[in-house]
Design a protein around this nucleic acid. Structure first.
Lengths: 192, 192
DNA sequence: TCGGTTGTCTAGCGATGCTAGGATCGAATC
DNA sequence: GATTCGATCCTAGCATCGCTAGACAACCGA
C-alpha cells in the first residue's frame, strides 16, 4: 500500500505545482501567456502530463479560481472581523474586496471574467464559491435595510464592487478617484 | 477624379461590410468564432484584405465597439427623453443600459470587456465613447446629490450597472431578480 | 497599346490547445 | 535475480489561430 500512497501523494503534489505555476505565470504575464507548452516547461514535464490532471486549460483556470475564492473569503472575513459596527464592517469589506482584486488580478479574472468551467449560483456550485459569497453575505446582510432580501442586497452590492474593480483595471475608469467611488457605494447602498 | 472617388466609396463600403459582418458573427457565435479566416470568407475576400483596412483583429473589435457606443448613446437618450422627472429618467436610463447589454452581448463585450485598442477616459478617447458617457452624465448628473461631483457619481452608477450586466450574463448572478436589483441601485444611489 | 501602379490572392510562418502511439520505467511474480 | 506486465511519460503531429511576404492580375493614365 505504501507505494501506491506515495504515488498518490506525488501526484497530488504535482497537481498543486501545476495550479501554483499557472497562477504565478498568469499574475506575472497575464493569462494569455499561460500556454500549455510554457506551463509544461515550467513544471519540467511534457504537455500531456497536464491533461492527466485536468481536462484542459479551462479546468486549470477553474482550479486557480477555487483557490482564489477561498483566499478571498478569508481576506473578507479578516477585514470585517476587525471592524466595529455594521457600517464600518461594510466599508472594510468593500476595501478588502477591491484590494484583493487589485493585488491578484489574474486570480480575479479566473474567478469572475474567464471561463473556468465552474457553476455559479446553483446547487452544484463548488463549496469555495458558495463560501466566498457567504462571507460577503455575513456582513452585507446586516445593512440590507427593511424589506430587502439580504441575498439580493448582497448580490447588488457585490455587482457594484465588481463593476468598480473591472472597469478600473481595464482602464475604463481613472484609478485616482477609486476611494471616493467606494465611499459613495458604501454610503448610499448600505443602510446602517 | 470620379474614378478615385468611386474607389474610395467602394472601399468605405467594404469596410462597413467587414465591421457589420464581424458584429453579426460575434453576436451569433461569440467573438471566439470571429476568426480572420471566417470573417474573410463571409465577406468573400481573402484574409489580407482585412489587413488593408485594419491593423488586426483588435482594431476590428474596436470598430464594432465605436459603433456600439454610438447606438448606446442614442438608446439611452431616447429612453431618458421619454421619462418625466429626474427619478424616472434614471430608472429609464438603467433599464435602457441593461437592455442594450442584454440585446447586444457581443457589442457590449467589444465595448467594455475585450481589448479593442481604444483609449478610455482620456484626452484622445474617441468621440463616440466620450458621447456615450456624456449621455449617461446628462441624466445621472441631476441626481448626484449635494457635494458629490456629477462625473464621479456617473462613473459609480455606471460601474454598478456594468457589474449587474456582466455578472448576470456570465452566469454569476441568476437572471430572475435582475429587475429588483436594478430598483435597488436606482433607489439607493440616486438622490432625487 | 504600353508601362506602372494598385489591388488581390496563394502560400506559408510561428504559435495555439489538444491527442495518438510508442518508449520506458518500476512493481509484482516466478 | 530474471521476467513479465501495467502504469507513466514523452515525441511527434493535427487542426486552427493571427498575421505577412511575394507573386500575380487588373486597371488607369499616357
Amino acid at each position: 500500500m505504501s507505494v501506491q500512497e506515495r504515488k498518490q501523494r506525488e501526484r497530488a503534489e504535482r497537481e498543486r505545482l501545476i495550479v501554483a505555476t499557472a497562477r504565478e505565470l498568469a499574475e506575472q504575464q497575464g493569462w494569455d501567456a499561460v500556454t500549455t507548452r510554457r506551463l509544461a516547461e515550467s513544471i519540467e514535464y511534457s504537455q500531456p502530463v497536464l491533461y492527466s490532471h485536468f481536462r484542459g486549460k479551462r479546468e486549470i483556470i477553474g482550479a486557480v479560481a477555487l483557490q482564489g475564492a477561498t483566499e478571498m473569503a478569508v481576506a473578507v472575513r479578516a477585514a470585517t472581523a476587525a471592524a466595529d459596527g455594521p457600517r464600518a464592517r461594510v466599508a472594510a469589506l468593500a476595501h478588502a474586496y477591491l484590494d484583493f482584486a487589485a493585488r491578484n488580478p489574474a486570480v480575479y479574472d479566473a474567478l469572475f471574467q474567464l471561463d473556468g468551467g465552474l457553476a455559479y449560483a446553483q446547487e452544484d456550485t463548488p463549496e469555495p464559491l458558495k463560501d466566498a459569497f457567504a462571507a460577503l453575505l455575513e456582513s452585507l446582510g446586516e445593512v440590507a435595510g427593511d424589506g430587502v432580501h439580504p441575498g439580493l442586497f448582497t448580490e447588488t452590492f457585490w455587482a457594484a464592487l465588481h463593476g468598480l474593480a473591472t472597469l478600473t483595471r481595464a482602464g475604463r475608469l481613472p484609478p485616482e478617484d477609486t476611494e471616493r467611488r467606494v465611499e459613495l457605494v458604501v454610503d448610499r447602498l448600505a443602510i446602517a
